[in-house]
């Protein structure tokens, strides 16, 4: 479970990127985090993971504060950034071994999961190549495999579908559904509202650093599409 309480983030004393955000994503939820460019989505996700510090409020991962028990929280999280920066001169398999060793994944399980996800995302034949030679989509896939091989309880993804081919997109969505069925918590930012509408049971909409809507997808989307509702919210017609 992710619990964000009175969270604010300012890069300098005057300029708040996110203001007083309250959001709860329960176990078994897939939550879409939606908002315009510069709304504060990536900043919030980075604070959830512990990449960025923040002073106001708190973020709890399965009841533990990311501020106070960062290492303990990070053991349960997998994070995939929007632009995965992985070690270019390492081979894919070396990178996966590194991540598995950090999370202390047992050898048998590691081998089985690398094979499973390598085949699923059609990466097995490229694992012996240097990451520097990968396309953006392949880097995205290797980050996904790295995120999934340690069985995370909380998955935080920043625009995960950008650069992925249709088949991998399909399998990622299926994997996300399967993970939440077994009790994981997933939150991801996206601009693709169709995907958000079909995949997620929760949605949070951010505008200029403030949460303008959060709740069940079904409660928000009834007679209209998410795109239409989002446009209305953005224009201030809907509160």
């Amino acid at each position: 479970m992710i619990s964000i309480n009175n969270f604010s983030k300012a890069y300098n004393k005057k300029e708040y990127v996110v203001k007083n955000l309250n959001l709860t994503v329960n176990d078994g939820d897939i939550c879409a985090f939606v908002g315009h460019n510069g709304a504060g989505k990536t900043t919030t996700l980075k604070c959830m993971v512990g990449i960025l510090d923040f002073s106001d409020g708190d973020i709890l991962i399965n009841g533990k504060s990311i501020k106070k028990e960062a290492i303990s929280c990070k053991k349960e999280i997998a994070y995939i950034p929007d632009n995965p920066e992985v070690y270019d001169h390492l081979r894919g398999i070396e990178y996966l071994n590194f991540i598995a060793s950090v999370f202390k994944v047992p050898k048998d399980k590691k081998e089985a999961l690398i094979k499973k996800y390598g085949d699923l995302f059609e990466m097995t034949e490229f694992l012996n190549q240097e990451i520097g030679g990968y396309s953006h989509g392949m880097k995205q896939k290797i980050s996904l495999i790295a995120a999934l091989i340690h069985d995370p309880k909380v998955l935080i993804l920043d625009e995960p579908f950008v650069g992925l081919d249709p088949i991998s997109t399909h399998y990622l969505k299926e994997e996300m559904k399967s993970m939440v069925k077994s009790g994981a918590t997933i939150i991801f930012s996206t601009h693709i509202l169709d995907v958000a509408e079909k995949l997620c049971n929760k949605i949070a909409i951010l505008k200029n650093g403030s949460l303008v809507y959060s709740g069940n997808m079904d409660d928000l989307v009834r007679n209209k599409s998410l795109e239409e509702i989002y446009m209305e919210i953005d224009n201030g017609k809907l509160n």
């Binding site: 980075k46 993971v49 512990g50 990449i51 290492i71 303990s72 990070k74 053991k75 999280i77 994070y79 950034p81 995965p84 920066e85 992985v86 070690y87 991540i99 950090v102 999370f103």
Partner: peptide
């Protein structure tokens, strides 16, 4: 360049 990656890991 690897700051975000390392900061997100339990290290």
């Amino acid at each position: 360049k690897d700051h975000d990656l390392l900061a997100s890991l339990p290290i």
